[in-house]
Nucleic acid binder design. Structure first.
Length: 331
DNA sequence: AACTTTAGCAACCGCAGGTGC
DNA sequence: CGCACCTGCGGTTGCTAAAGT
C-alpha cells in the first residue's frame, strides 16, 4: 500500500466540500473556515515550513490569529490540525507497533472512542492516527474475530469465536475475580486482586455506564490504596451505580477519579508492571490458555480480546516495588 | 493494459466545553 | 447570567495508491 509517511504533497483532501466553500457563502460553516480567500485542502511543503518555523518561534496557541501572524492563508483550525497531526516534532510516524496496537485495544475497551485520551497514553501518536488505525485495522480485526468493536463483547454470544483464524481465539472471561469490597492494603491489592472488567460489564447497562466504569475502578483503587476504612468503602456495585448519578455521598469519587483514573491508565502502559501482573495471573488462573493482559503481543496471539481482566495497580506503585512484591509473593 | 475495488489516511466539519467579559 | 469567542474533539469525507479482475 501507500507509504504511511505521507508528505504534504501526497495529501488528498480536495479543495472544496459541501459546506464552507471557497466563497464562504455557506451559512453553516464556522467563521474561521468561511473567510474569503483562505486556502483549503492539502498543505504544501512551503506552508508546512512557514507554520513550523512560526510555531517554533512563537509557540503554540492563539490559533485563530496564528495564520495572519504567520502569513498563512489558512484558517486557525487548519493550522492547528496540521501542527498537531503532522508537524509537531513529537509526532511519531510509521507503522503502529504490535505493542502499541495491543495498548490501543485495551485502552479502547476502557475508554471507547475517546481518541485523544487514548492518544495521550501512546507517546508520539495522534488521536487522528489512532482513530484511523482503529477504523481501518482494529475494528475489522475485531469483527473478524466475532467481537463487537464498540463493546468488545462477542457479536453473538451464542456463537463461538470463528476457528478459521490462524490465531487463537480470545480467552473467555474467566470465573469472576474478587471485586474490591473489603479493606485491603495496596500490597494486598496488587498481589491478590484483579478487577474483572468483563464481569463488571455484565452488571451494567449498555451505553451510559460503559465508559464510566474506569472511573469507578479507579475510585476503588484509590480507596484501597489510600487505606480508607472498611465502612467507607462502597461495593463496586455502588461505585458503578453512583457514577451514573450525582449522589453526593460519593462525591469524593468524582473528585479523585480524574487523577486516579490517569494513574490507572498509566499503569496499563507500564510494561514491567504487566509482566509482573502476568506472572501473578498465571499463578492465580492457570486455566487461562493465554494471558489476556499481556502488553506485548505474544507469538500467535493477535491481541484481540485482551483485557478480559485488568490489573488494579496505581501508577505510583513503582516497578521496583512491584518486582519486589512479586518476588515476595513467590517466597 | 485497462478498469474496478479496496485500503489508508489527511483534512474537513460541526459540536461542545471552557473562558472571559 | 448570558453571550461571544477560542480550542479541542469525534465523526466523516474523499482523494490516492495498491490490489484485484
Amino acid at each position: 500500500m501507500r507509504n504511511p509517511i505521507a508528505s504534504s504533497s501526497t495529501n488528498k483532501k480536495k479543495n472544496s466540500t459541501t459546506t464552507g466553500n471557497e466563497n464562504g457563502t455557506t451559512a453553516t460553516t464556522t467563521p474561521c473556515c468561511s473567510k474569503v480567500g483562505l486556502k483549503r485542502g492539502p498543505w504544501t511543503p512551503e506552508e508546512d515550513e512557514v507554520l513550523a518555523s512560526f510555531i517554533r518561534k512563537e509557540g503554540e496557541g492563539r490559533w485563530r490569529t496564528l495564520p495572519k501572524r504567520a502569513g498563512l492563508l489558512r484558517c486557525g483550525k487548519s493550522c492547528r490540525l496540521r501542527w498537531m497531526n503532522y508537524l509537531r516534532p513529537s509526532v511519531k510516524r510509521g507503522q503502529i507497533a504490535p505493542d502499541e496496537e495491543d495498548l490501543i485495544l485495551r485502552l479502547h475497551r476502557l475508554l471507547g472512542n475517546r481518541w485523544s485520551l487514548i492518544a495521550g497514553r501512546i507517546p508520539g501518536r495522534t488521536d487522528n492516527e489512532i482513530k484511523n488505525f482503529w477504523n481501518t485495522h482494529l475494528s475489522k480485526k475485531l469483527i473478524s474475530q466475532g467481537i463487537d468493536p464498540r463493546t468488545h463483547k462477542p457479536l453473538n454470544p451464542e456463537l463461538s469465536i470463528p476457528s478459521s483464524s490462524t490465531t487463537p481465539p480470545p480467552p473467555p472471561p474467566s470465573k469472576p475475580l474478587p471485586v474490591i469490597t473489603n479493606h485491603q492494603t495496596l500490597h494486598e491489592t496488587t498481589t491478590h486482586h484483579h478487577l474483572n472488567i468483563a464481569s463488571v460489564n455484565q452488571e451494567c447497562d449498555e451505553g451510559q455506564y460503559q465508559y464510566q466504569q474506569p472511573q469507578a475502578v479507579a475510585a476503588a483503587a484509590y480507596m484501597v490504596a489510600n487505606d480508607i476504612p472498611d465502612d467507607d468503602i462502597p461495593s463496586m456495585d455502588h461505585l458503578l451505580a453512583n457514577n451514573n448519578n450525582n449522589n453526593q455521598d460519593y462525591n469524593d469519587i468524582n473528585y479523585c477519579s480524574d487523577d486516579i483514573f490517569s494513574s490507572f491508565l498509566n499503569s496499563l502502559i507500564n510494561e514491567d508492571a504487566f509482566s509482573a501482573q502476568r506472572h501473578l495471573q498465571s499463578e492465580h488462573h492457570d486455566d487461562l490458555a493465554q494471558d489476556p493482559v499481556t502488553s506485548s503481543t505474544p507469538q500467535g496471539y493477535n491481541g484481540i480480546g485482551v483485557a478480559w481482566e485488568l490489573p488494579l495497580m496505581p501508577a505510583n506503585f513503582s516497578q521496583n516495588e512491584h518486582s519486589h512484591e512479586v518476588d515476595d509473593h513467590h517466597k
